[in-house]
Simulated assay, not measured.
Amino acid sequence: EFMEALRDRTVKIDIPYITKLNEEVKIYEKDYNSHKIRGKHIAPHTLEMAAMWCVLTRLEEPKKHNLTLLQKLKLYNGKTLPGFTEDNIKELRKEANREGMEGISPRYVQDKISNALVSDKGEGCVNPFMVLNELESGLRHHSLISSEEVRKRDRELLSVVKGEYEDIVKNEVQRAISADEDAIAKLCGNYIDNIKAYTQREKVRNKYTGQYEEPDERLMRAIEEKIDIPESRKDDFRREIMNYIGALAIEGKTFNYRTNERLHKALELKLFEDQKDSIKLKNLVSSVVDKDTQEKIDIVKDRMIKSYGYCEICSTDVLNFVASIFARGDAKD
């Protein structure tokens, strides 16, 4: 036998694939970055979504805890979820002792990213959908997929990843639209004035009429509902904010909404709700956009380019994509 002596001294050891998203992303970032790829921009989240799908194919469905596979991936990647501790994560890994031994290899993903890069579809920019479509089309002829059942599961996981990407870009567009610091500060000031009056059982002076009015319950609830503060807990939340402001005042400090993550998020969501119609995001899918709307859209695009790493092409594509979601009425309030 050929090389019998060598084979007699060789032991096969199976090494599992990576099951942590951030580590998988690093594999692709090493080869597909702005230093190595010239002439084409890789849109934000493109490598991340490819890596996410790849890792998902390697994970076993959670047996307990009422978890989705995507949530399991996020836990493995260090994200905290309510009710889950480090011990729970260790238990998840323990119950799936062959996890990572099967699934899609990085080589397959690298081949498909390369295909997307040399494609003439991107007009100078490769986006996640181009890569995900390449990944899906290649499944038909993937020699290492053992059964049609596995092939079907891998396709379904592509849909999971597309749904996650949709949520990510909706959030980014939302943040870009509501990134007007002055507008957030003004909204915050209005909210604080109202909850102060509410908690102290006072009235609020209308700056326009000069009249004293009851606190604006509608405004307060519109903000609080954005972070799921129920009616039964609104008083506690308002007192919590006022106590925090009071504690800062004792220390000679001024309240800044950025220091309260929940309130900051609520203000952003409320501002987005108020501004999305003025920007006429739904009308982006129309070929006719008035000058005022176009100026606002350009400001949002500029924020996406500066803050999130988009280029002129993919920022336009993402805005159109998110606009189409709003046009369908699928966007989350």
Rank of each mutant, 00 (worst) to 15 (best):
E1C: 13
F2M: 08
F2A: 09
E4H: 07
L6F: 13
R7T: 07
D8L: 13
K12F: 15
T19D: 04
V25Q: 02
H35L: 14
K36Y: 12
R38L: 03
G39E: 00
H41M: 04
E48M: 04
A50W: 01
M52H: 10
V55L: 07
T57S: 00
L59D: 03
E61W: 01
L67G: 02
T68W: 00
G78F: 07
L81N: 01
G83H: 06
N88L: 00
I89H: 05
K90A: 10
I104H: 03
K112C: 04
D120K: 14
N127Y: 14
N133A: 14
E134K: 15
L135N: 01
H141S: 15
S143R: 15
E149L: 14
D154V: 08
L158V: 10
V161M: 04
E164D: 09
D167I: 12
N171P: 00
D193L: 14
E202V: 00
V204R: 05
T209L: 03
Y212G: 04
L219T: 04
M220C: 13
E224H: 08
E231G: 06
D235R: 12
D236Y: 15
F237V: 07
Y244F: 09
A249Q: 08
A249V: 01
E261P: 08
E261Q: 12
K265N: 12
L271D: 04
K282D: 00
K282V: 12
V285C: 08
S286P: 02
V288H: 05
D292E: 11
D292W: 09
T293E: 02
I305H: 01
K306A: 10
K306H: 06
E312C: 02
C314T: 11
L319P: 13
D333Y: 11
